[in-house]
């Protein structure tokens, strides 16, 4: 996507957003959508996936309009040794890993389980966590979670600092240098492009359509629905068919659930992992300690008020105690 944003545009946009948000802030209850609206989740049955990559190309076709069109030559970024150019624009057809132009790829793995060799094909993309650290920790809010459970990176606001990738347990977002808002500020000193990842065709979903990777799959590997329904179905299949689930508890719960005939620790051991090639290990809730601290934040002011009231009460008691009166 070739965003031609001038600095003026940014400030105009910023001012509009600020004004809009200011109005939204007044009507805060309307701006906050609670857990009443159900999040959408996907269920991927790995037993059905033949690795044909129809989903990969459907994703590419459907999202081509969102892909980066970097400006070259890239600005020299300092310190040169620490800030590396990440350019995938000459290698857009890469499908063996995640890139800014490949938001979904098939991980192929051969595993030995129960005495026999099995081949599995695993469509990999953003897990769309229930409590996504990429969105919670993004310094500009460019990665954000929608009420339907989709985590989207706003490419117009992203500076490409890759914090979302650093905090993602699967290191999913991928960076393209030479594109985005950082070019309008101090490209040598801050930012390094824009981060890209699966946005689960949020624009299609907003129109009531189904994501391209789901509609184009000839084997019906993936299905999408309200999270509660998907979880209920996944658990029922696991129970009745003795298969394994991944994504249910990972990182505090995700909106992508995999069904596999082979335990995921066996798959992970055989998996080719690395940059753009995520693992499939158990993941603890990344936001657990922050959530605990945020609960303490609610108690903190109350504790302060109580301590101050107690202190004053003790002082008043001392002043008006009978001993004091007798002494006086």
């Amino acid at each position: 996507m070739n965003h031609k944003i001038s600095r003026r545009d940014l400030f105009t946009k910023g001012a509009k957003r600020t004004a809009a948000a200011g109005i939204a802030a007044v009507a805060l209850p309307q701006a906050v959508k609670g857990a009443t609206g159900s999040e959408l989740a996907t269920l991927l049955d790995l037993r059905k996936c033949i690795g044909c990559e129809a989903c990969v190309y459907a994703c590419k076709d459907s999202n081509a309009k969102k892909y980066p069109e970097p400006v070259k030559p890239f600005p020299v970024m300092h310190p040169v040794k620490r800030v590396k150019v990440e350019d995938w624009s000459e290698n857009r057809d890469e499908t063996t890993r995640l890139t800014p132009y490949t938001w979904l790829y098939i991980q192929r793995v051969k595993v030995y389980y129960n005495g026999k060799e099995q081949e599995l094909n695993i469509p990999r993309r953003c897990m769309h966590c229930e409590n996504p650290p990429c969105a919670n920790l993004c310094p500009w809010g460019s990665a954000h979670k929608q009420s339907n459970g989709i985590t989207v990176i706003d490419t117009e606001l992203c500076f490409g600092g890759a914090k979302c990738k650093d905090v993602c347990p699967w290191k999913i977002p991928q960076r393209q240098t030479g594109v985005g808002i950082y070019l309008k500020f101090a490209p040598s000193l801050g930012g390094n492009g824009v981060m890209y990842k699966c946005d689960r065709c949020y624009d299609k979903i907003a129109q009531g359509e189904i994501p391209a990777c789901i509609t184009e799959c000839p084997e019906g590997v993936q299905k999408i629905g309200p999270r509660e329904d998907i979880i209920r179905e996944a658990k029922a299949i696991a129970l009745s068919e003795g298969v394994y689930l991944y994504g249910l508890e990972e990182n505090g719960g995700t909106n992508t659930i995999y069904i596999s005939p082979v335990p995921f620790d066996v798959i992970d051991r055989a998996l080719e992992k690395g940059d753009g090639k995520p693992h499939i290990q158990p993941v603890a809730d990344s936001m657990a300690s922050a959530d605990l601290l945020s609960k303490a934040m609610v108690i903190a002011p109350l504790a302060g008020i109580a301590a101050a009231a107690g202190k004053n009460f003790r002082m008043l008691k001392k002043i008006f105690s009978p001993e004091k009166e007798n002494n006086e």
């Binding site: 809009a20 948000a21 409590n131 500009w140 809010g141 954000h144 606001l157």
Partner: peptide, 18 residues
Amino acid sequence: ASQKGVYFSLDFIFFLDL
């Protein structure tokens, strides 16, 4: 905004960050 099940609009989060 960073609590599970709470959703603020992108504009509002951007406004808060700013």
